[in-house]
């Protein structure tokens, strides 16, 4: 890949719009080309700068009130139409209208919530780690080598269970910083697929496994006690779920 091909793709990479193969190709170019790497850093900083300055405009409360009262009038009218069974056409339109307007008016979940920011960070980190020579700080299939390696490096002891019998092979670990928090990244393999497990000490809502898909990868997030976990891989969602519940079980038993 040359710089001219890379330039527009830097933006797609920045916006997490690339498929995994292209992302890896771009990352490889970035590791080889200083000019593009500098440009990419500048773009990352620009994006952060814009996000930090919050240049967006907020809705004036007066306008919100005006729109809401108008909406209520219409909604009342629609409800009235709806109550008349012979008016079948307006009923359909009315119901559709209410649904659409509710979708617009109800406060939307912010798409760029902090969980999503962390998810993007995690995936970036995982992709970066897949580059040659980036996968481990400690390379071992022995849980008694990997687990103690984190002593003194993190203020928690990450779960490093032996899951060989379940088809997940331990291959090593490394220390990462995710969202300004030290995190233990434990690497397992499922056949040829690499799974990164990130453990960090930040309590969250317990018991819920939240699965999301990002650029062809699956990310699974859950919390247990004082710990938060993220698992990311290109394995099937079901496999990742199995993996997560095994890890969660092991964490419960202090392994």
């Amino acid at each position: 890949m040359n710089c001219r091909d890379a330039e527009p793709l830097l933006h797609a990479r920045l916006d997490n719009e690339l498929d995994v193969a292209s992302a890896i190709t771009v990352d490889r170019h970035l590791s080889e080309c200083r000019a593009c790497a500098a440009q990419y850093t500048a773009l990352v900083n620009l994006q952060k700068e814009i996000a930090a300055r919050q240049p967006g405009y907020t809705l004036p409360p007066k306008l919100e009130g005006k729109l809401a009262s108008r909406f209520t009038e219409k909604a009342t009218l629609l409800a009235w139409l709806w109550s008349r069974p012979w008016q079948s056409a307006p009923t359909v339109v009315g119901v559709a209208a209410s649904i659409v307007l509710l979708m617009i008016f109800l406060p939307r979940m912010r798409t760029a919530g902090s969980t999503n920011i962390i998810a993007a960070e995690i995936l970036d980190n995982h992709l970066r780690a897949l580059q040659p020579g980036h996968l481990f700080d400690v390379e071992s299939s022995d849980q008694h080598t990997v687990k103690p390696w984190f002593q003194g490096k993190t203020d928690f002891s990450p779960p490093v269970p032996d899951l060989t019998n379940d088809g997940f092979i331990l291959v090593g670990g490394r220390l990462e910083v995710i969202h300004q928090q030290p995190a233990a990244a434990i690497v397992y393999k499922r056949r040829q697929h690499v799974i990164s497990l990130y453990a960090s000490s930040s309590p969250g809502a317990e018991g819920k496994f939240v699965l999301q898909e990002l650029g062809g990868y699956h990310l699974l997030h859950w919390s247990h006690g004082e710990m938060s976990y993220w698992a990311v891989s290109d394995v099937a969602a079901a496999d990742l779920r199995d993996f997560a519940s095994l890890i969660d079980g092991a964490a419960g038993n202090g392994r």
């Binding site: 967006g56 405009y57 809705l59 004036p60 306008l63 919100e64 617009i104 008016f105 939307r108």
Partner: peptide
């Protein structure tokens, strides 16, 4: 709604017109 206002505001670059 907030998105609608924000976009309008950036396009016309004037608060009253955006409303």
């Amino acid at each position: 709604m907030r998105s609608a206002y924000n976009l309008a505001r950036w396009l016309v670059r004037n608060g009253d017109d955006a409303e």
